[in-house]
Design a binder for these strands. Structure first.
Length: 599
RNA sequence: GGCCCCGUAGCUCAAUUGAAUAGAGCAUCUGACUACGGAUCAGAAGGUUUCAGGUUUGAAUCCUGACGGGGUCACCA
């Protein structure tokens, strides 16, 4: 239930009032008018014609008159072409919109039914550093959380850290075997990269040992099991589960290194969490559940002691919940976490930002919850996003074709430095300002690039295109913002530093086409934010904000603000500029991107 | 093989969820600074929406089939 007073919902409301019995609000299509036709908004009449048994001309005229009458001052005229009712929005309405309190432009908080929502994202493994895929995940999760907040929901950000399991033991074994006591401090290396290197060392050593065994005449399958380093790792996992002191100590130490590295990266990219869960804790909760499920007959035990659930009724398979030796698997931990989340936070909805390769897994999780009677099974939402692929092919950690997150961030910032220097814009900046600027632009470019695409779709990461600062990019939008600030500074100087003095009433101005186009576009922002929330899709905002910047630039190239034809126009255009800057700043903020006053 | 997702300009992406002549950016080409920032603006060119049927007043969008690409079906996470 929205308290919205924006144009398209005003039109829809007045129509649905007229036909309360025949139609619901959903039945009325209000679109923007195509540029070839006269008008600003268009009501599509096709679906209404048959039930009402009226001709397009008659109905269009009727509805047009009704909309005009029930929204005084909104519509200045209308025309009907075929089954399209084109409405002209009045200058008065648009100008009064421009004079709204600017803080209202952040909208949101207008929706009455607040929900408690948890957004789980990032969720790294503690055996290797973050890569490009994690960046998409982090930007997406953070942005979706902020968008939901902007729509008036109560949002918690969370992360589940995958801190236990055989893969963690691999880097631990390799460290014991090869490090000679080296630490991130002693090698002056970032902790997550340091540990990740030992994970790679493990794989290399393992490969070597397997090849040696095969060379000695042992079959491949057997060799993979028999390789000494693998046996040591499995032994370590067992010792970890038993809580052997030395193992736990090493585990804690190495995880600590990784967390320190992650924290640095999170800080840089702006990820934050209200709650961090650890699998080393939630897997115990899951085990507890399996025990209960066995008692009440939801699950069953096979001869070897392994525990299963049968989901064939739901069209899924049998699913393992606990290994024969009693240790837990991935899904076990998830069940524990679901309950923990919902009970601790009393959630209405729990969103999981996880790659689309886990669609099946999340289906299974939901189905298990349903089957054992969790009341929140249907409140689990998988926001799945597509893999990020490289132009050179897929990212594979084993083949060294991953794009490391830290490296990429460095590269983006270096590129923004390069561009800025090339354009000769460094002269008025202090060293510190420059550093901040490069950070703002580099991060802005990267976040925008990864968020501008529909999350559900796979995307291709083109390194050359990603560092481009022209066209559909973050810096393009940031540039528009900086230019507006520049205008405002100039004007502010000319009126002796009283920037508020131009925010006077605008009287009887007639809008030029480019002015009108811009206001109508600004007026849509509220709809865009709620659309982004409904779809859990930040790209809606990225697209909007880019088109807004473009629309402003077109206007700006045609019409002068500071040297407008008269004071009335100048006043109007200053409002336009301020409102545009406000919306750009707000929209980019929802994407995690900040704006520079100069660049 | 079963199930799921995808296929739109040379490339990367849109298309208000079924509506008017399918839109942007990059790349290519042509123009524009003695006006507030040229990281900009104006314009040109680029399409049988993979193919074949079907539903509909209307299909990139829905249905069926084919072809092509990806994911997933672990006592991995």
């Amino acid at each position: 239930m929205s308290l919205s007073t924006n144009i398209s919902s005003l039109v829809v409301k007045s129509l649905s009032k007229l036909y309360a019995h025949e139609f619901s609000e959903k039945d009325f299509q209000v679109n923007e008018t195509k540029p070839e036709f006269e008008g600003d908004y268009t009501v599509v009449l096709f679906t209404l014609l048959k039930p009402l048994k009226k001709s397009p001309e008659t109905l269009g005229k009727e509805l047009g008159e009704h909309i005009v009458k029930s929204n005084p001052g909104l519509i200045s005229g209308f025309n009907v072409i075929k089954a399209f009712l084109n409405l002209n929005i009045s200058d008065e309405f648009l100008i009064s919109f421009l004079q709204k309190n600017y803080s209202d432009v952040c909208f949101g908080k207008k929706i009455l039914n607040h929900k408690k929502v948890m957004v789980e994202y990032s969720s790294p493994n503690t055996n290797k550093p973050l890569h490009l895929g994690h960046l998409r995940n982090n930007f997406l999760g953070w942005s979706v959380a902020e968008i939901l907040k902007a729509n008036g929901n109560e949002v918690y950000k969370s992360s589940i850290v995958n801190d236990r399991g055989i893969h963690i033991c691999k880097s631990m074994i390799a460290w014991q075997q090869f490090a000679n006591g080296a630490t991130p401090e002693s090698t002056n290396e970032k902790g997550d990269h340091f540990v990740g290197d030992y994970y790679v060392k493990f794989n290399n050593e393992y490969k070597k040992e397997v090849e040696e065994l095969i060379g000695a005449g042992i079959k491949k399958e057997q060799a993979e099991k028999e390789a000494p380093i693998m046996k040591k790792t499995q032994q370590m996992l067992l010792e970890w589960e038993e809580g052997k002191p030395g193992v736990l100590e090493l585990w804690n130490k190495m995880n600590g290194w990784v967390y320190k590295g992650f924290d640095e990266t999170y800080k840089r990219i702006g990820s934050d969490f209200d709650q961090t869960f650890y699998e080393s804790q939630t897997y115990i909760l899951g085990k507890e559940f399996v025990r209960k499920g066995l008692e009440d007959g939801s699950f069953y035990k096979k001869e070897d002691g392994s525990v299963w659930i049968d989901l064939s009724e739901a069209g899924l398979d049998e699913k393992l919940l606990l290994r024969g030796d009693g240790t837990s698997v991935y899904i076990t931990q998830d069940i524990g976490l679901v309950k923990e989340k919902f009970e601790k936070y009393n959630l209405d909805e729990s969103i999981y930002v996880i790659g689309d390769e886990q669609i099946y897994h999340m289906k299974v999780l939901k189905e298990i919850c349903r089957k054992i009677g969790f009341p929140f099974a249907d409140k689990i939402l998988h926001l799945s996003y597509g893999m990020v692929e490289l132009t050179t092919g897929k990212m594979k950690s084993r083949e060294g074709t991953v794009v490391d997150a830290d490296d990429l961030i460095d590269e983006m910032i270096a590129t923004s430095k390069h561009h800025t220097e090339e354009l000769g814009k460094v002269k008025d900046f202090t060293e510190e300002e420059l550093k901040a600027l490069y950070e703002t632009l580099g991060m802005g470019a990267m976040k925008f690039y990864l968020l501008r695409v529909d999350p559900k779709k796979r995307m291709i990461f083109n390194p050359e295109e990603s560092i481009d600062f022209h066209g559909f990019t973050g810096p393009f939008v940031q540039y528009t913002y900086a230019r507006i600030q520049s205008i405002l500074r100039k004007v502010s100087e000319s009126i002796n530093g009283h920037p508020d003095s131009f925010r006077e009433t605008i009287d009887n101005e007639k809008l030029l086409p480019l002015e009108k186009q811009l206001i109508i576009f600004l007026e849509k922002y509220e709809n865009i934010i709620s659309q982004a929330a409904e779809e859990l899709n930040p790209s809606v905002i990225a697209n909007y904000v880019f088109h807004l910047a473009k629309t402003f630039n077109s206007f700006y190239a045609e019409h002068s603000v500071a040297n407008a034809e008269n004071d009335g126009k100048k006043n109007l255009r200053l409002h336009l500029a301020v409102m545009t800057a406000t919306v750009i700043k707000s929209g980019l903020q929802l994407l995690g991107i900040s704006v520079p006053d100069r660049m």
